[in-house]
Design a protein around this nucleic acid. Structure first.
Lengths: 212, 212, 212, 212
DNA sequence: CATGAATGAGGCTTCATTCAT
DNA sequence: GATGAATGAAGCCTCATTCAT
């Protein structure tokens, strides 16, 4: 289905992907019917099957696009930092804002991860994100900045914290006017937690939150 | 559907819940047909509707039971500890082992959380887990053991780390002979991360992983 | 299923017939489930099949009982009158009151008449009612009191008027305190219409409603 | 479901309505399965749901169409007459012929009237027919042609007679070659009964049936 | 390219009836 | 006599996908 598309075709395809993504995110894969997508767009069903092989194919393309987009944002954010710990901070911050700006894709990714059918695809993307993080962790350890733990587990933990706080803070906030503030707050909480954990730094009891 | 059940009936119901849970966990809610469940059990389709109002009802009961079970394990684990930080550790450890022992229910909960239909139910359970954790965090902060941060966000972060590591380590390990070891490993990684975070404790550079 | 019944058994049977009749009348034959009937009575399903061969059988028994009851009332009402025209009036009046007093059975009979399955049974009862009316009509014609028309068609017309007015007046009134008055009103309207029709009796222009 | 239909689509819809009406009339609402209708037409099950929201919806559309058709015939018949009593006669005659020509719709309407679900719809149509008749009755009373009775009750009685005679004469006759004659006979009997009732007009003992 | 129309497998659920206890 | 439990055929409806126009 790597059809050569006219500009108008490319536009159509984009509109379909976007509409479909919103429906999938809201209702889930199965409850979303192809009819609902095309009706929402006011086109016939043939259009859908002109651009996608199947509903499954459409869903996958959305996932791949979303992951590519998130990864690109992370890469850009990290590019400016030299300190390994700050690179991690920047990655968390960028991720959090992307998740806040693309709530429906966030929901979609979480959803796809639990679906037998799409889990491998999502997992691949997550492993890539872990892999992207590993060099910074290793560098941090080598520099004596980060604790000497299994870097892979650390990366997983970082992603887990980011995810959980995004869910708790960002999704709850909806897209009201303070959505950006919620993302900031979630990002700083995630960064703080990942840096220092729970325990008081006994050697430095005045320790307060360190602006990342 | 709170039918009065004979012992035999109660047994049937339990078998249905278990079979259904495994199917749901493996295939997801929609791809699992009621027919598949009852066929697997070798009973007629009517049996399912004798014990449950609907497929939806059955799914919910599984979720509620699972959450109740997980919460009970956490409560028991925490009961023996007096130190707030150790209570948190114990909770993480107990959760991780429950997740390892009930992989299919773990998968089910993650799945339900992403489904519009069941998300509120799951969220309620998660909020309860957060609420269960708050007192320990507050006590820890009051005792000067834990950092003075928003306790709710800390609780969310802890659950996020536990979840992520369970997914990465426990689910990957499958249920081979070293499943218990995997759970231990994941639990200790989670505890360590939650306690100290990423950064080297500069005041105490010898800092190594603290056996929980 | 002409089982010998103990007194308690006869009582059970009567209760079943009554409960079933009300459900059938309200919801119709198919939408009424055997489960609904026995649940309403607080007994097990076995009871139903102890007293009736099938749902169909139960329905028929209700119909037969109802028709027997209506016919008995008509017979009693007619017994006291000697004038043929007054016998017809009395029959109309008695029918109307029975229909008002047994609204659910009225509804049931109307319903059964339109059901392929039970229509023959109901038709038989109606033909009997027509047959019961014929002698009075014939006597009236012979006595020069009634118009010389096909007696069968006249009988059908009389029943039609009674039915239509019962539906319009009696069923609409529900079973409020003025239900009896509504039945009276409907009966007198039916009698009046059947006696004189629509046209003004030109020979007697003072003609007003004649108390039946 | 007010879909924009192509000519071919409109034709399909009509065929579905007709086939469905015949099945419903013969077997009743519940015993008629959607499968039976589409099989009879030799189309797939989806076709039915392309044109109707549900079986219920289809049934209602048939009812509404039938009532509209009957009412149109009555209106046309009445249009040519100026004398109020003759308008009523013409209405009876037209109704009787419509009922004879559309026996299955007649059966359907009678059936629907006894079904909780559709009764309101049918009742609405009947009240309209009553309302259509009222002006003629009132005009007749005002002109001193008709007896001074509650016009509404008179209208109901007229419809009741028509209905009953249609059932007795027209439906019994089937659709043999003398079906038209049966309708005529039933119509004249109804008209005669409605005009004069049962009693001999004592002032005019020569009184015979008046050709309407 | 696009649409209205069609397909038909398959899903959830109901329910009359039977039966072991 | 009675009940809870079970059966399984059958019904309504959905929906991914295809195709003629």
């Amino acid at each position: 289905m790597s059809r050569r598309l006219t500009p108008r075709g490319a536009e159509r395809r984009r509109a379909l992907l976007d509409t479909a993504a919103r429906h999938f995110a809201t209702d889930g894969y199965h409850p979303t019917s192809v009819a609902a997508i095309v009706d929402d767009l006011g086109v016939g069903k043939g259009v859908f099957y002109w651009y996608f092989d199947s509903k499954d194919d459409c869903y996958r393309q959305i996932l791949v696009d979303a992951q590519r987009s998130l990864r690109a944002v992370q890469r850009d954010a990290v590019a400016d930092e030299h300190d390994p710990a700050r690179r991690i901070d920047a990655g968390i911050r960028a991720s959090m804002h992307w998740l806040a700006d693309n709530r429906h894709l966030f929901a979609l990714l979480e959803q796809a991860r639990t679906d037998e059918r799409f889990a491998p695809l999502v997992r691949r993307g997550e492993q890539q994100m872990v892999a992207d993080t590993l060099p910074h962790i290793r560098a941090g350890i080598a520099a004596g900045l980060l604790r000497r733990e299994d870097p892979e587990l650390l990366a997983v933990a970082i992603l887990g914290v980011t995810d959980a706080l995004a869910r708790a803070v960002v999704l709850q906030a909806g897209d009201g006017p303070d959505a950006g503030a919620a993302a900031d707050r979630a990002a700083e909480a995630a960064i703080s937690f990942c840096r220092r954990g729970l325990l008081v730094d006994e050697a430095d009891p005045r320790s307060e939150r360190t602006p990342a």
